[in-house]
């Protein structure tokens, strides 16, 4: 299946028992594009993100990422996941390892780098998120914002083709959000393809190429940030954006 989209998900359905969480979602993302997914909680946006790297198995549909058929049983999923970075709301750093250990684990055991080379690459990744001087700290010694930046470094060290962000700033104190968004802005400027589930509307406005509004397991509407925020065509989008902006 030839496609010029780096992510091409079609007709994704996901059931959790009797719960129908995704009801036929199509999402195509161009290379170097930054797509923002917004919507009320329970709308399925995180589930959609987690289907893209198969942390969840969709009930049906097709997903191509960088030309790899993610749902084909013959696909080496671990190899495919190297190309898809993921950043979680709760950071999920390994607490028993240093920042550098967190970043080098997959470099050594997935990318097959020798220790010395992995450490050079790992330090470079930490440098990119502004934490070169924290390489030997454990997660417990870092602030939430620093932990999330280490988590970003852990992903970008593997040189992914796409980065998925699942509410990356929702667990942070307000004063720490800026440093994480700063790193994300830097990634965007370097040309990284990014799919971001978040409610950081200010960031969406000036950094996103496209905003996707999801509700009740479906994409309701999508378009450039200005169009979605100033001129939503659907009542549900208008109601949601009104709610968010009142905060």
């Amino acid at each position: 299946m030839a496609t010029n989209h780096i992510v091409d998900a079609r007709a994704i359905h996901k059931h959790f028992g009797t719960l129908h969480v995704l009801k036929g979602v199509d999402l195509k993302v161009d290379e170097r594009e930054l797509v923002f997914i917004i919507g009320p909680s329970g709308s399925g946006k995180s589930t959609l993100l987690r289907c893209l790297n198969r942390l969840e198995d969709p009930s049906s549909g097709s997903i191509m990422v960088d030309g790899i058929d993610m749902l084909n049983p013959k696909t080496d999923i671990n190899h495919a996941r190297r190309r898809i970075g993921m950043v979680f709301q709760s950071f999920n750093l390994y607490p028993h390892m240093t920042a550098l250990g967190n970043v080098t684990l997959a470099l050594r055991n997935v990318a097959g780098k020798a220790r010395a080379e992995a450490e050079v690459l790992g330090r470079a990744a930490l440098e990119r998120v502004g934490l070169a001087d924290r390489a030997d700290h454990t997660p417990g010694q870092l602030s939430g914002g620093q932990q999330q930046r280490v988590a970003i470094a852990r992903s970008i060290a593997l040189e992914p083709r796409v980065m998925l962000f699942d509410e990356p700033t929702s667990a942070l104190d307000p004063e720490l959000v800026g440093s994480v968004l700063e790193v994300m802005r830097g990634l965007r400027e370097s040309g990284m393809t990014m799919i971001v589930v978040s409610h950081e509307m200010g960031f969406a406005r000036n950094a996103a190429d496209r905003v996707v509004f999801m509700d009740d397991g479906l994409i309701v509407e999508q378009g450039p940030p200005a169009a979605i925020f100033e001129n939503p065509t659907h009542e549900r989008t208008r109601a949601f954006i009104g709610q968010i902006q009142r905060h």
Partner: peptide, 20 residues
């Protein structure tokens, strides 16, 4: 979330068990 983070970087189930 620990296993999810490990698997998302491409570690196998056994590697995630062993290292994480």
């Amino acid at each position: 979330g620990q296993v999810e983070a490990a698997r998302s970087t491409g570690l196998t189930r056994m590697q995630a068990m062993r290292y994480v």
